[in-house]
Amino acid sequence: MNKVFDKTKGLTDVKTHYCPGCTHGIIHRIIGEILEEKNLLGQTIGVTPVGCAGFAERYFNCDMVGAAHGRASAVATGVKRSLSDKVVFTYQGDGDLASIGTAEAIHSAARGELITVIFVNNAIYGMTGGQMAPTTLPEQKTSTSPHGRSIEKAGFPLDMPKILSQIEGAAYIASGSVDSPKSIIQAKKYIEKAFDTQLAGKGFSFVSLLSTCPTNWGLSPRDAINWLQENMIPYYTLGELKTWK
């Protein structure tokens, strides 16, 4: 019998700690597949964040560095400037990149740093137990906005891909989702283009992916997907916001 599907060599055999129904696994797999398909695993250094993906250095099958909270793109800058012929990517959540690490993300883009940033937006702080994130939607309930995010008190969510697409040094900015087979295929194309951007030396590359957090949203995995489709997709800008090809 022909084998029609195999787990990518881009990921290790370590069991992940992600909750059931979490979409981090899908995004990990896409990245792993691309690194394997492009034969980059031996030449790639990944940088992990603090947050749910704080253990991702165990899962990606390449050299990895763990960064402090929000600092992944600064650490990646240090790596890329030291090993300019290698491929460098960061994997960051919304609290990490859009709150405590906003400056690092924006200035890496401004410098046109030749790194690829994968941004996972699930509109909540997952690892710490479901607090309000910079990406939490208006009226969304979290453990620090129990009555729903108040626009008067807590302001509006940040749309990071939209912000970054305004920056000259950013060469490729895309915003997708992983809520359906179609969007997953699209997400993979975005991430592939992001790595191509780095390999071509064009500048900073960034892919944002809307993601679910069934545990902290208090929904079943299926309902979480529905919630993402009904609430996050209408709110956030999607598509290729900046490209060079």
Partner: peptide
Amino acid sequence: GEFVQAESEVAAINMVQGSAAC
């Protein structure tokens, strides 16, 4: 060598971490 004027002291030390890791 390589020189970067970082956006902050915080970013600078984390760039050092990345470089030192190499």
